[in-house]
Write a protein that binds this DNA or RNA. Structure first.
Length: 115
DNA sequence: AAATTGACGGTTA
DNA sequence: GTAACCGCCAATT
């Protein structure tokens, strides 16, 4: 009821909200011990150019919603700035890091299409 | 209202 | 392997 009313007042609301919901659901689906990149997620929710927005979306979420945000890294395997615990969380799932501090994407990146 | 910033990515060099 | 640039777009100055 409120939502229907709100859609007519603020057309952007629905699209933004759906974007967030889609991002969350993709993140939730990442298996333990695997990682996904921001760009991959952006592509999967139909906005291939907007990898930055995925980062924006995940920024304000970390603890509250039980999302495995730590399984999202950038395309080079680098972990999130200002969140050093992410490395430990991943290592606890068996994800090994290269000497330069990056996740070995060849091994741990989860390819959605690939079985 | 304009400029800057940023959990990003692809292409070069 | 790095680093500099550019494109992108919402949020913050």
């Amino acid at each position: 009821m409120f939502a229907v009313f709100y859609y007519t007042l603020v057309p952007d609301f629905m699209e933004k909200n759906n974007f967030l919901v889609d991002v969350y659901s993709v993140v939730t689906s990442i298996p333990k011990g695997k990682v996904m990149t921001y760009g991959q997620i952006a592509y999967l929710v139909g906005r291939p150019q907007n990898s930055r927005l995925v980062g924006c979306a995940l920024r304000g979420v970390s603890a509250e919603l039980h999302l495995p945000c730590h399984r999202v890294v950038n395309c080079q395997g680098r972990i999130a700035p200002g969140w050093p615990e992410q490395r430990k969380l991943l290592e606890e799932e068996g994800v090994l890091f290269k000497k330069n501090g990056c996740v070995n994407m060849k091994v741990y990146q989860w390819e959605f299409m690939n079985e």
